[in-house]
Amino acid sequence: MSSEWPLWEIFIRGQHGLNHRHVGSLHAPDAEMAIRHARDVYTRRNEGVSIWAVKSDDIVASAPSEKGPLFDPSNSKVYRHPTFFDIPDEAGHM
């Protein structure tokens, strides 16, 4: 059996109130050590307040070939963006 440690994807919350963000990956034998390695590898400069580790194999990704069907439809829904609406200056800030 291979002794290569599994790969983990590391997500770090940089400051209170922000989303966790993907920062990179590393190898670790299990989840607990993945968290510790992440602390040692990815927060050397005081970058984090919280760490998530996810086994790379467990990440489910959308297929690039489906990029059109997945994301193009939202292009046409421009009314979801605030700039779609013209509000007269006289109405004040909105």
């Binding site: 440690w5 590393l26 190898h27 670790a28 510790r36 390695h37 040692d40 590898v41 050397r44």
Partner: peptide, 11 residues
Amino acid sequence: PVLEEDIALAN
């Protein structure tokens, strides 16, 4: 023995 440990030990 492995990069992750190298970094941790230096800490």
